[in-house]
């Protein structure tokens, strides 16, 4: 297995007025391809900042971040956009589907920014929806879908580009227990199919689906351990 993510001494310093906030303080982290990692931490621990940097939405103030061997911290905004488009899939807590737009078109969105024919885009979007079990709901608007279904549309959107990394930020935060379980099962399945999944959560039972758990505190890694039992027992 090759290394997917390598963070070396990452600092992220925000300036709010005259006050400097150190969101990350020299954090180092390595994640191999195919891992299922849960990042946990209290609010203010810096896990969201880490998430943004891992997702190439933000860049570290200091330190190095390599994604798939590429030095992300040196890239320009347009290159970051390309990486997000090609290598990363996002799943958000509040789904972030585009309102009054069909499921199919929501899934299609990342392909908007690629030179692909409309037909190819639609075919691939339909395929991605099928992977999350939403065949037949291509033309439903998000208001016509349950929370769990909306999140599955979001996962399909993240999948459509065949990313090497799936970043899920509190993916079950707005869902009931049953839907949460379904979503986690899907993430687990995708991980077994080879996609690296990084999950940010503060719920221990959700984190338990992952096979590795990293605790963040004060912008540094507090603990990093493998979780063994749960995923195997719940997985299939």
């Amino acid at each position: 297995m090759s290394t997917l993510i390598q963070c070396d001494g990452i600092w992220k310093i925000y300036r709010i007025g005259d006050v400097e906030v150190n969101a990350l303080r020299g954090l180092s982290l390595t994640i191999e391809q195919g891992e299922f990692v849960a990042i946990m931490g209290a609010s203010g621990s810096g896990k969201s900042t880490l998430m943004n940097i891992l997702g190439c939405l933000d860049q570290p103030t200091r330190g190095h971040y390599r994604l798939n061997g590429l030095e992300v911290d040196k890239l320009r905004p347009d290159q970051l956009a390309d990486i997000r488009n090609q290598q990363i899939g996002f799943v958000f807590q509040n789904f972030n589907l585009i309102a009054r737009t069909s499921a199919l078109e929501n899934v299609q969105l990342p392909l908007f920014y690629r030179a692909l024919s409309l037909k190819e885009q639609r075919t691939r979007a339909a395929g991605a929806l099928e992977r999350v079990g939403l065949s037949g709901r291509e033309h439903h608007f998000s208001t016509q879908l349950s929370g769990g279904q909306q999140q599955r549309v979001a996962i399909a959107r993240a999948l459509i580009t065949n990313p090497s990394l799936l970043l899920a930020d509190e993916p079950t935060g707005n869902l009931d227990t049953q839907s949460s379980r379904e979503i986690m099962m899907i993430l687990d399945r995708l991980n077994r199919e080879g996609i690296t999944v990084i999950l940010v959560t503060h719920e221990a039972d959700i984190a338990a689906y992952a096979r590795r758990e990293i605790q963040i505190q004060d912008g540094q890694v507090l603990s990093d351990r493998a979780t063994t039992t749960r995923s195997q027992s719940v997985g299939v």
Partner: peptide, 16 residues
């Protein structure tokens, strides 16, 4: 605004 954020997250560049 949120839609713009989503579009950027999935790879829209400034010019898009």
């Amino acid at each position: 605004t949120r839609e713009i954020g989503v579009r950027m997250a999935v790879g829209a560049k400034r010019r898009h």
